[in-house]
């Protein structure tokens, strides 16, 4: 059982997290500036129709699976970590809080606004106005940038919370 949770679980948690944060950085480093350039020469629809929706599906589901697998690894220690009940849980507690805020940002702000921007799901038949899209675009952009910013300390505390790294950073 320990092997499943701590071995397989951690492996899948990290793999899932790589997919999630990899796509987050792809959006911020590649797609946003790429769309700006594509908008100038009229090629943006190729990205918004075929690339962005696929990337967003992997993005939101990997965010969920990363969070669930992280919660599974912490198991009954999850409340203690989130409530900082023991010094040993301080680093992973910070990492878990940052990951939780980022996960809520994905499902509460980025995904609902991206659906409006890209005319997905309920907006496919009923697109919102251009004014509403502009508001959604700015909200999704800032939420995505906040997540990019938070990913830096989140990764540090995830790495610094385990094994020899914890002893190195928090002796």
């Amino acid at each position: 059982m320990d092997f499943l949770i701590y071995g397989l679980g951690r492996w899948l948690h990290i793999g899932s997290g790589v997919l999630w944060i990899g796509l987050l950085w792809y959006f911020n480093l590649v797609q946003v500036p790429g769309l700006k350039a594509a908008g100038a020469d009229g090629t943006a629809p190729g990205i918004t129709k075929h690339i962005a929706p696929r990337a967003l599906e992997f993005f939101r589901w990997s965010a969920l699976s990363t969070w669930l697998l992280g919660a599974m690894i912490l198991g009954d220690k999850l409340p203690a970590a989130l409530l900082f009940q023991d010094k040993a849980y301080y680093p992973i507690g910070i990492g878990a809080w940052l990951g939780t805020i980022m996960f809520l940002n994905v499902w509460g702000l980025i995904w609902p606004n991206q659906k409006k921007i890209l005319n997905l799901y309920q907006y496919a038949a009923n697109p919102v106005s251009d004014a509403e899209k502009n508001v959604a675009r700015r909200t999704a952009f800032l939420a995505s940038r906040v997540n990019s910013m938070l990913s830096i300390p989140m990764l540090f505390f995830m790495v610094a919370s385990g094994g020899i790294f914890r002893r190195a950073f928090f002796p």
Partner: peptide, 30 residues
Amino acid sequence: MKNPLDSIWGTVICGLLLTSVLYNIVHYLY
């Protein structure tokens, strides 16, 4: 004042500063 999150470098610098602040808080309390 411009929002630092509008640029990639502003975002990275904010992330590094936040890491430093959180690390020092946890290190102090640890």
